[in-house]
């Protein structure tokens, strides 16, 4: 699998990371190097081995359906650059 500058541009856009045009080619090369290391792992025979879903062999804990949080609007909004009347306020999103 090879990554080109166009792929880097697309992935950066999807991740909302701004990369100048002249950085795309060097980034593609870096990513290709990383991917080629990962490809080495494919040499390991994994037939009959279950994919690992977690590093700890425990089941997902479940909680009871009770209300334990909320009613803390001030704290929820405390990091917001802009808020009013209990709302987060963000630049206009046009739909």
């Amino acid at each position: 699998m090879a990554i080109d500058a166009a792929t880097v541009r697309k992935v950066a856009r999807l991740a909302r990371i701004r990369e100048p045009e002249e950085r795309l080619e060097p980034l593609a090369q870096e990513l290709n190097t990383i991917i080629s290391w990962i490809e080495q792992l494919e040499e390991v025979d994994t037939d009959g081995v279950e994919p690992m879903t977690s590093v700890v062999a425990v089941a997902l804990p479940l909680r009871d359906d009770v209300v334990t949080e909320g009613g803390d609007t001030r704290r929820i909004l405390s990091n917001a650059p802009k808020s009013a009347d209990g709302f987060f306020i963000v630049p206009k999103v046009v739909e």
Partner: peptide
């Protein structure tokens, strides 16, 4: 553990997990 419902004031039914505060982990109901 934030309440589900209709009619509460804005952002009154929000847990830190729902607001995606760093370090918060989801626990399923």
């Amino acid at each position: 553990g934030a309440a589900v419902g209709f009619g509460a004031g804005p952002n009154e039914q929000v847990a830190l997990v729902d607001a995606a505060m760093p370090g918060m982990l989801p626990v399923i109901n």
